[in-house]
Computed example of a mutant assay.
Amino acid sequence: MLTRSGAAMTAAAAGLIALGAWTDYPELVTLGLAAAGTLLVAAAWLVASPRLTVVREVRPRRVFEGDAAQATLTVTNVGRRGSPPLRITETVGGHRTTVAVPALTAGHGCTVSYPLPVASRGRYVIPPVQLGHSDPLRLLHRGRACGGELVVHVYPRVHLLATIATGGPQDAEGQTVSSAPLGGVAFHSLREYVPGDDWRRIHWGATARTGTVMTRHVVVPDEPRQLVVLDTGATPYSGRLFEDAVRVAASFCVAAERSGLPLRLRTTGGAERDSSGTALELLSTVACGAADRGLAALSDLVRDVVSDTEGVALTVVTGRVGTDAAQLLMQLRHRFLTVNLAQLVPPDSALPARPRGVLAVAAPTSEQFAANWNRLVLR
């Protein structure tokens, strides 16, 4: 590929040869041929390109908004001839970053580190690096792709939120269900021994009575589950309030994980995750849409998570709540241990609705919401 200097040299060669032939001026033709010969030498230089290996690492691969991700390139000259100075181009989220690599003698290498432009939340697919080199006069440029794609997740910024002590058993002797995870200390029932069971849990009395080796079935006790619902409809939000709503939802997910409580995240658009790590990955790419039903879909979203044996604490993150949504939350209140409502509203706007029996907190930003929430919960 011609560089700007190469294009100028090509135009000069053609112009000098044409002008010399037209004016019968051999000196101009000679200058034009010299310029053309320089381009041919540059092309020959690129044909004998150096043999290089490129290893790229990106750490960390998962960061929060505002944190930095850094790439490290290790370039090694494995050929027999030295390599000229190189330019390596990274394209991340539409932004190009050019990294200069010095000339390398045969058998030598160098390591170059540089920050990646991943400031806002999202899932960034980083294509292979473009390894390019030029001739000494910078007339021609040749590039090739090296390595494979990498993915970097930028999670929403998270604020420290206090958790509410909800009702329901959380100790070792709490209520249990057969579907609870194994490995706890709460006794649920007796069952037949299977290879791999801890022999210390064999119930010898039941074994003697039944003639079959019986063991205690112990599970993790039932704990109040945390259900976080993010409204991904476009109607409740204006400006960048949706970004603040995503940060608030992420903060609730991290708070539940930090407290050791089972978590489920759902969006009104139908997406769902069951742990803090996967919830943050979902929240790194979630978007609001005009076709999303918003909180009108809340009844369908929570129908399958409420049972007689499990307590669920519901947290709804949205923008300004209308009268219909407020009434819906009041109707659902009796089905949950607690119902929390997080509203992201424009500053200097009228106070939003506060449904009866619902802990409602409103703020114009995620930072202000965290401050308001903690002030209310910890008082």
Rank of each mutant, 00 (worst) to 15 (best):
A342R: 02
G167F: 13
T163A: 10
A68R: 13
L265H: 05
V246C: 05
V218Q: 12
T3G: 08
D244L: 04
H95F: 06
V305R: 01
V151P: 01
G132W: 04
I88T: 01
W199M: 06
W373G: 06
E281P: 01
L337Y: 07
E149D: 12
R333M: 08
T10H: 01
L280T: 08
V286Q: 04
L33C: 13
V358E: 07
L161H: 04
R216G: 01
V228K: 00
G93A: 13
L329Y: 01
T91K: 02
H108P: 00
A43P: 02
L131I: 12
D171K: 00
P117H: 10
V306Q: 04
R273M: 15
A208V: 12
R264D: 14
A326V: 03
A206W: 07
M1F: 12
A245M: 04
S5H: 09
V151M: 04
L86W: 09
T166C: 07
L301Y: 02
R142D: 11
A256E: 03
L31A: 15
R303L: 13
A12E: 09
R216P: 08
V306P: 06
G66Q: 09
R121C: 07
M330H: 08
R209P: 06
I17L: 05
T278Y: 00
D171S: 03
S5D: 05
E149F: 13
S83T: 05
D197A: 09
T285L: 12
T166G: 08
S307P: 06
P224M: 11
W199A: 14
N340I: 03
A296S: 15
L131M: 08
L46Q: 11
V316A: 12
G168C: 09
W204K: 03
V101R: 03
S251W: 08
R144L: 03
R379V: 12
D274M: 03
P346W: 11
I17N: 05
R209E: 12
S238R: 11
L282N: 10
D304G: 06
D135F: 02
D300G: 11
D198I: 00
D348P: 00
P236Q: 09
D135M: 06
R157I: 09
A43G: 14
R157M: 06
